[in-house]
Nucleic acid binder design. Structure first.
Lengths: 191, 191
DNA sequence: CGTCTATTTGAATGTACTCAAAAGCGGTGG
DNA sequence: CCACCGCTTTTGAGTACATTCAAATAGACG
């Protein structure tokens, strides 16, 4: 049940059984049905989520009223509205289940307790966020330097099941293009 | 001399005089002349830099041979090629001084020692990187949802001295547009 | 003063968007 | 099991935002 989480923590730190047990005591397991929301814009974000099974999307709604996907979180991803979660102020993002999704959720107080009880976790999240930052920085560079077609190819390469698990309009929104244009691009790629 | 650094550390953690003294012992002060490079693509990044005075730009060169600016680091910013620094593998980024710049540099072993000697620093860098991630995520959303003109206005708002300290072609590259188009935009804004 | 680089301007072009309409697809109820 | 509804994807025409290339102008520095 908790193998994936254990594996994830062990990527950066070593926890003994007692520590891991403590970690488990602080989190709660929850299943969200497809299309339901874990976070709503305007509300203060209560949890950070670890996806054990399923798929989530983090998005916001821009001034023109369009939804824009920020990231997809599949198995073994941590996801939250980090600004809202850490500041405990109302956030701008929505988090929605694209499939029936089982998450392990950690509240802010739970996380703070864990950080005091298992100081190694400071290190774990430090490294996790460094890697997240690096990935996001690359994405900015891709937006600056690559065409929509290159970004699409790269995305599919990094996340091959995306086309099976995510609708085209959500992929288009993530890539920063319109669904119409993605459709035209794909028909063009075959020739 | 070290007031800015002290202030920066104190944003997220409290260090006593002894701990701060230890921090200072681990870093070295260096001044780089305008246009000189602190990091070269292809080499392993030795240091993480704190900008005490001056201005740096982090950039890479894309497939087409163009320089693309990733970020500008002015006073009180930490900057490095994080991938290369933490993995100690060759990196893809260049870091160059846009003004004569005084930095405090911290080598990988120095940082690792500090993290052992002052465990609170794990927390400091964790929070620092969370904030960096949030900022980068916002930048991705801006690239997806905003026009070049909106991105330009926002950039100038967040960094008003930019126009005095950074050449237009570097700003254009940061915004993901050509210098020609930035020029046309600016003349258009006046009418 | 001359050289080198940065900025401006213009014309032609390309990439991606908007709007509209048609086609496809999945689920639901009769 | 078929018909219908709602949503997603495809296709097309016209348009807009931003690029490319070229040339002129302006600025910075030795």
């Amino acid at each position: 049940m908790y193998e994936l989480l254990k594996q994830n923590l062990n990527r950066h730190i070593k926890l003994n059984e007692e520590e891991f047990g403590l970690f488990l005591k602080r989190l709660s397991v929850k299943t969200y049905l497809k299309d339901s929301h874990l976070i709503q814009s305007g509300q203060t974000c209560k949890y950070t989520y670890f996806v054990n099974k399923g798929l989530l999307r983090l998005y916001d709604i821009n001034k023109k009223g369009y939804e824009k996907n920020t990231l997809f979180a599949k198995e073994e991803w941590w996801v939250s509205d980090l600004y809202s979660f850490h500041s405990q102020k109302p956030g701008a993002y929505f988090l929605q289940a694209l499939e029936d999704t089982e998450v392990f959720q950690l509240s802010k107080p739970a996380m703070e307790n864990l950080l005091l009880e298992i100081p190694k976790l400071e290190r774990f999240w430090r490294i996790l966020h460094i890697n997240a930052f690096i990935a996001q920085q690359e994405r900015v560079m891709d937006m600056i330097a690559k065409t929509a077609e290159e970004r699409y190819r790269d995305f599919i390469e990094k996340f091959p099941e995306a086309e099976l698990r995510i609708s085209q309009r959500h992929i288009a929104s993530y890539l920063g293009i319109t669904p119409e244009f993605l459709s035209k691009m794909k028909s063009g790629l075959k020739h």
